[in-house]
Structures are given as C-alpha cells and as structure tokens.
Simulated assay, not measured.
Amino acid sequence: MVSQLESEKQSTIIYPESDGQPMADNTKQFRWITVIHGNLSWLFANDEMVFVAGDLLWYPVEGNPKITQAPDVMVIFGVPKGDRGSYKQWEENNIAPQVVFEILSPSNTQKEMSKKLLFYNRHGVEEYYIYDPDKNQLSGFLRSGEDLDVIDSMDNWESPRLGIRFDMSGEELQLYLPNGEIFQGIEQIKEQLQQKDEQLQQKDEQLQQKDEQLQQKDEQLELLVAKLREMGIEPDELK
C-alpha cells in the first residue's frame, strides 16, 4: 500500500516545460545561442546518440521539480536525438549533460551566475563555458575529480568532449570545428545545407540520365537482335 501511494504521488508531480523566462534578452545573446546550438547540431548530425538542446529545462532529480536549470546550450552524449518538452535525467539512463554553454546578457547578475555554477558543479557537468559578448570575456570550467575547476587560459582552448577550439585573439570569440572550419551563422549553415541538397539532386539527375542511356542501349540492342533474326541469323551463332 505504501509503495502504491508513493507511486501515485510521483505520477502527480508536474515538471513544467517552461520557466517563464525568454530564451534571450537581446539579439546579440540570441545570435550567439543559435550559432553555438546550430553548429554543434551540425557537428553531431550523423551521431544519433548525441543530443544538442537550447533553452531546455533540465531536471536532474526525480520527484523535485524545483531543482532545475535551462542552459542556453547543452550537449548530452549517450542519449538519442529527439523532441523533448524537458530533459528529465532519470528517464535518460541518468545521464547528465556533459557540456553546457551560457551566454551572458546585461541582466545576468553575479549571484545568478554563481548559483548556476554551483548547480552544474553539483549535478555532474563536465565542461562549462560562459561567454559575455558585450565585454568579449570567456570563462571555462573543467571537471577534475568531484568539482569543476576554472580553466586558466581559454585562448586556443580545445574542448575535450566536443573537439572545438576557442580563439580569443580577435575582437570577439571565434569558435572552430574539429576540421578547422570556423563556426558559421545560421544563414550560412542553411546555405550549406541547400548546396548539399542541390548537389545530391544533381547526382540523382546524373544517375537518372545514365539509367536512361542504358535503357536506350538495351532498346537498340533488342532492335538489332530482331533485325538479325528477320534475316535468318541467330545472334548466338555470331559469338
């Protein structure tokens, strides 16, 4: 009876899918969130067991919906891609997001960011990156043992999990994919996808043309065989 009551209690707990806060406070913050999310999604597009999410509520503890955070971008290795209203860790083989990004806006306070750091430290994040686009300041933390430790220098830092590189030598952060290509904006990614679709379409058209040519050759061969037989010649006898 006790276990049944506990089960019914668990089933009535509501885990909201929104915290009522906007995804971004301004266009600059939104642009950075979408660029990081889009390029990481592109990077792991062919790996079905890497889930990349933006502004998605993460619940690490079953039964306590008050313990939650919505990282600007988070990457989780070992769980399948797919749509989710929130990330309930206990429903995902208890796998915590390994990499988290936060993009600062003027409204973010030091107290708020300190709480986020404590949250990510407590709940198993392996890499945590914070970028302030207004001040062009980047901070990073890497898990060592039980805690997230600050990364001394972020310039040319390479993420152990993602393989991406952070370049702070310019007027704003530049991010590079493992193949050396720079992170691109969403419009550029769309253009690349469109170009790939066009290339695939061209290949399909070429294959279709080859099929048509082969079909024409087969038809010509059949006509030749028919003419030979009209002349009383069996094509097999010519071999």
Rank of each mutant, 00 (worst) to 15 (best):
Gly63Ser: 07
Thr68Gln: 10
Val2Arg: 12
Pro133Lys: 06
Ser105Arg: 07
Gly140Cys: 09
Ile130Gln: 11
Lys239Gln: 13
Lys116Phe: 11
Asn46Asp: 15
Lys135Phe: 05
Trp42Phe: 14
Pro60Thr: 04
Lys227Thr: 06
Ser107Tyr: 07
Pro97Arg: 04
Trp58Ala: 01
Asn39Tyr: 04
Leu162Met: 12
Leu40Phe: 12
His37Asp: 12
Val79Tyr: 08
Trp90Phe: 09
Thr34Glu: 13
Ala70Thr: 06
Ser86Ala: 15
Pro133Phe: 07
Arg229Lys: 15
Gln188Glu: 15
Lys116Gly: 08
Thr68Met: 12
Tyr15Ala: 03
Gln184Ala: 13
Asn156Lys: 15
Lys9Asp: 10
Met168Asp: 01
Asp83Glu: 14
Gln194Cys: 02
Lys196Phe: 08
Asp72His: 07
Gly163Asp: 09
Glu102Trp: 06
Gly124Thr: 06
Val225Glu: 14
Phe101Val: 03
Val99Lys: 02
Val225Ile: 14
Leu162Asn: 04
Glu198Lys: 12
Met168Ile: 03
Asp72Leu: 07
Glu92Cys: 08
Gln10Pro: 00
Phe166Trp: 05
Gln213Cys: 00
Arg84Ala: 11
Met113Ile: 14
Gln199Asn: 11
Gly78Ile: 03
Ile151Gln: 02
Leu223Met: 11
Thr12Cys: 08
Arg229Ile: 13
Trp32Tyr: 14
Val79Gly: 06
Trp90Val: 02
Pro160Lys: 09
Asn136Ile: 05
Arg31His: 08
Ile14Asp: 12
Pro106Thr: 04
Phe44Leu: 05
Met49His: 12
Ile182His: 03
Met49Tyr: 13
Asp19Gly: 12
Ser41Ala: 15
Gln4Cys: 03
Phe30Glu: 11
Asn136Thr: 03
Asp134Cys: 00
Asn136Lys: 09
Gln195Met: 12
Asp152Ile: 06
Gln216Cys: 02
Asn39Ala: 06
Glu112Lys: 13
Pro178Ala: 08
Gly145Ala: 10
Lys28Pro: 00
Glu6Ile: 07
Asp152Gly: 00
Gln4Thr: 07
Gly20Arg: 08
Met23Ile: 14
Asp25Leu: 06
Gln201Thr: 09
Asp211Phe: 05
Met74Lys: 04
Gln29Leu: 01
Leu193Met: 13
Asn46Pro: 00
Lys111Cys: 00
Glu92Ala: 12
Gln137Phe: 11
Val75Met: 04
Ser105His: 06
Asn39Met: 08
Ile103Arg: 03
Val35Gly: 00
Asn39Lys: 05
Lys88Asn: 12
Glu127Leu: 09
Asn64Lys: 13
Gln192His: 13
Glu48Ile: 01
Ser105Met: 05
Tyr59Gly: 02
Gln206Glu: 15
Lys88Tyr: 07
Tyr129Trp: 10
Val99Ile: 11
Asn136Gly: 03
Phe141Arg: 01
Asn26Pro: 04
Ser105Cys: 07
Ser114Thr: 11
Gln137Ser: 10
Glu102Ala: 06
Ile95Trp: 04
Glu126Lys: 13
Gly163Val: 05
Lys111Tyr: 13
Gly124Met: 08
Lys9Gln: 13
Phe183Arg: 05
His123Ser: 00
Val125Asn: 04
Lys135Pro: 00
Thr27Ser: 13
Phe77Ile: 04
Ser3Asn: 13
Asn93Ser: 15
Pro235Thr: 10
Leu175Asn: 01
Lys66Arg: 14
Val75Tyr: 03
Gln192Lys: 15
Arg165Pro: 00
Glu158His: 02
Ile95His: 04
Leu117Cys: 02
Ser7Trp: 08
Gln195Trp: 02
Gln209Lys: 14
Tyr87Ile: 05
Glu6Gln: 14
Glu8Thr: 04
